[in-house]
Amino acid sequence: MDAMDAVPYLLAFGLYILCSLFLLLYPQILHKKKQLAFQCRHISHRGGAGEKIENTIEAFTHALEAGTDMLELDCHLTQDGCVVVSHDKNLGRQTGYNIEISSLKLQELPPYKEKLEVTFYVGHYSTGQDRKFAPLEDVFMKFPQMPINIEVKENNDTLIEKVSSLVKKHNRESITVWATEDSDIMRKCRKQCPAMPYSFTMRRGLLLLVLFYTGLLPFVPLGESLLQFYLPSIINRTYIPEETLLKKRFVIFLMEKLTMRKSLFNHLVKRGMQVQLFVCNEEKDMEAAFSVGATGVMSDYPTVLSEYLRKHPIPPTK
């Protein structure tokens, strides 16, 4: 192929790049903007695990009083079929008893430790008067208008069905979010309650990056309503991961360069999605998250986040 033969291909490629860049800035030309029932800048991770014992009614109440817009929590199933709010399925870290939640009835669950280390703020501990595991239905009844992000970690059909039934029972499909890293679990969640908004899984998040860097993203419809991701700069500083790969400084550097792209986040926001970065427990991390284009920050410290937002008001998202 000589130089002249290549001209049409170069022109087509140039046109593709121009169209992609234009639609990245103006996605409403191809995509109807999503309309969510909530707009959350202040998200309390595990109900605010740094200020009260994580995932307790006391923690959720405290977060609400501190001014949170959304509660984030995880669920597991007890032996007698109760959906309880708990991050871990094994009670070792939270209670000191090396036993699975699924092997105990609700009334048999031991209390949380008096002092519990904050997972995403190494060396810091929380305490509180309430040390009881909360049934998910109690949370729904106590906070009927509060948006709640539910992460499902177990590929358990019964758990997913029960969570979905509780959401429908309390008429909160529009303010409850499906979240999970696993695409197979998400597929089951969406089948059980398709009316609930849902976040990107790990696999879909990787696809999102591929679409972004190849210029295809503006042309592709997306069903997700939220992108939730680590703020990379907290890894190996306030949060020490178990994964060996994440302990490598180059990996974190590469992750930050590839994922923290303001143009990507702005594009998603223009399509009506929310971008939430976690877990930001220091003001400098909150500032870093918002400066790169996050619409919301997830923190273990709802009071600290509220104070940050008071000092740094964010203009409403258009």
Rank of each mutant, 00 (worst) to 15 (best):
A288R: 13
E154M: 11
E283Y: 07
G215Q: 05
S102I: 01
I53A: 08
R131H: 07
F13N: 07
E58M: 06
V118P: 03
S263C: 06
S86M: 04
L11T: 10
V122S: 14
S263M: 07
L91S: 02
E108A: 07
D80P: 14
K34E: 04
V269R: 13
E287P: 00
E108T: 00
L246S: 11
L36R: 12
Q276W: 13
F278S: 04
K311W: 06
D157S: 14
V122L: 10
T244W: 09
M255W: 15
H62D: 02
M196W: 04
I235F: 02
S103H: 04
K162F: 09
L258H: 00
P194A: 06
P302L: 06
T238D: 14
A134I: 05
C280Y: 11
D80V: 08
R203K: 13
R187W: 07
D300G: 01
C19E: 01
S306H: 03
A12L: 14
D88V: 00
H45Y: 08
R131W: 05
L136G: 09
S291Y: 01
V269L: 05
Y121T: 00
F60R: 01
E224S: 15
L18F: 11
S225H: 12
V210Q: 03
Y301I: 02
V304G: 00
L136E: 11
V279E: 08
L71Q: 03
P147Y: 09
N281F: 08
K115A: 09
I240N: 11
R203H: 11
M202I: 12
H124N: 12
Q107Y: 03
V220W: 13
E154G: 03
Y198T: 05
F250N: 14
Q28P: 13
M273F: 02
L25T: 10
M1W: 08
L116S: 07
N281V: 05
S263W: 04
E307V: 00
S233K: 13
P111C: 07
D5N: 09
F22P: 00
E114C: 01
N98D: 15
G67N: 06
T295M: 12
G223D: 13
S164N: 07
A37G: 03
L209K: 12
Q129C: 05
P241H: 13
Y239S: 05
A195M: 05
D300R: 06
G272R: 07
G123R: 04
P135S: 13
I150H: 03
L166D: 13
N90T: 09
P8I: 04
V251G: 10
L106E: 13
Y213D: 00
G67R: 06
K311Q: 14
P135G: 10
I185P: 09
A49I: 11
L264V: 01
G92A: 06
K318P: 15
P194S: 08
I234D: 10
I175D: 08
F253K: 15
P232I: 07
L217W: 12
F229C: 10
G272T: 09
F120V: 15
R93W: 08
F133I: 14
T214A: 04
D157V: 15
V269A: 09
D130G: 07
G14L: 10
A37T: 00
L36G: 01
E287D: 15
P194W: 04
T259I: 05
T180D: 10
S291A: 15
E117Y: 01
P197F: 13
T259D: 00
L64F: 02
N156H: 10
T295G: 06
